[in-house]
Amino acid sequence: MITDVHAHLLLPQLHAAVESRDPAGAAEAAALERRRNGLPSLEASGRMIGERFAKLTDLGARLAAMDAQGVQRQWVSASPSHFYPWANEGLAVWIAAEANRLIAEHVAQASGRLTGLGLVPLQHPARLVELLDDAVLGRGLAGVEISSFAGDVELSDDRLEPFWARAAELGAVVFLHPFGCSLDERLDRFYLANTVGQPAENAVALSHLIFSGVLDRHPGLRLVAAHGGGYLPTVIGRSDHAWRVRPEARQCAHEPSSYLTKLWYDTVVHDERTLRALIEVAGASRVLLGSDFPFDMGLDDPVATVRAAGLPDEVLAAVLGENAEALLPGGVRS
């Protein structure tokens, strides 16, 4: 069973509803995206999404693409554009519940081939457990997708403790996928908002989890980091040094590098050497095939990309599917 754990679903009907419910908020968010990304990147992204719209929305197009890639199963999560971190509490709760419903309906049409991940409103910590339960218990999804931060909420925020505890209790997958970067206009050209911003956000978010002791308190957490964990796995030595010499960096029990083997990562690193290094640092059981389907910053042929890394047969089999199968909550297969 070859499984791609990083594949997206676009929900245009959800976005239209959000725009109609809070047009001012949606317009302000769109202006922020223009400032962060720059007009050339937004225009290029618009063309790209138009060309790949069927794969993002149509089940038949998705399954045909999976067959062409040699992928038997996808974990389907919403496009990160559906996080809406600016939404007020009432709207954000409605968005998450509606997204969970739509994702569940999509994956149910291809039982055995698709596994769904829902959404929770990260900017409203008091509502996270409720929407996690809605996704996993109410809709039968394998877990939820979250961003690297939302407003003033970082992943080290004490208000997230009930969410981490509940996710660990349920055995739910938490898929960390950034959207947007707080560096703003510094990344508004050359597509730096994605090429630099996404791996930087991954590194910052994972560092919040590690240094704050979240992984000490919730060792059963099943957190999968998109984009191979960003910059953190390859520069973890600097984090270890800080932990040794800086008292404010010692809120976790052990050196930060020791926690890399307690997380999972996808293979969307775009470089065979980096993939081999990630496996060496995190362990062969912690790396999962991913593609970022069907966006242009993903891997159009994810299986071939992993095979080209020259991994031993047993590691290849683990990365291509065994690790993902082992990570799913008991009984969740659709």
Rank of each mutant, 00 (worst) to 15 (best):
R73F: 02
E185H: 14
C252H: 08
S111V: 11
L39I: 12
D133W: 07
F190T: 11
G180Y: 01
E201V: 11
G237C: 02
S156Q: 12
V245F: 07
H254Q: 15
D188G: 13
A309C: 14
I146S: 02
A64C: 09
D157T: 11
L42I: 13
A225L: 06
H270C: 09
G290W: 00
H270T: 10
T261E: 08
F163H: 03
D133N: 15
L320Q: 04
E51K: 15
S148W: 01
S148G: 12
F175D: 00
A30D: 05
G321E: 00
T195L: 14
L215S: 08
E322N: 10
A65K: 14
L223F: 05
E314G: 08
G112W: 07
A203W: 00
P80I: 09
G230K: 09
G50F: 05
D296M: 13
L102P: 01
G112A: 10
H270S: 06
H15F: 07
L192Q: 12
D301L: 09
A308Y: 06
L11G: 04
E325F: 06
Y231C: 14
W243M: 04
L11R: 08
E105G: 15
A249C: 13
A16P: 04
H254D: 12
L122V: 07
H106K: 12
F295S: 09
G310E: 00
W86V: 04
Y191F: 15
W94F: 05
A282T: 11
D292M: 09
E19Y: 04
A225F: 04
D301H: 14
A205W: 02
E161N: 14
S291D: 00
P85K: 10
D184E: 14
E33D: 10
D240T: 07
L299Y: 06
D313R: 14
D184P: 11
D134M: 09
P40S: 02
D216C: 13
D157M: 10
G283D: 01
Q74K: 09
P294D: 01
E43G: 02
A97S: 15
A135C: 07
P162M: 08
R36C: 14
V93M: 01
N100K: 11
D292E: 03
L14D: 00
L320F: 03
G321F: 02
I236P: 02
G220M: 10
A225E: 00
I279S: 02
Q74D: 10
P219V: 11
L221A: 12
R62Y: 01
H208W: 12
Q109Y: 04
A167Q: 09
R113I: 07
D313E: 15
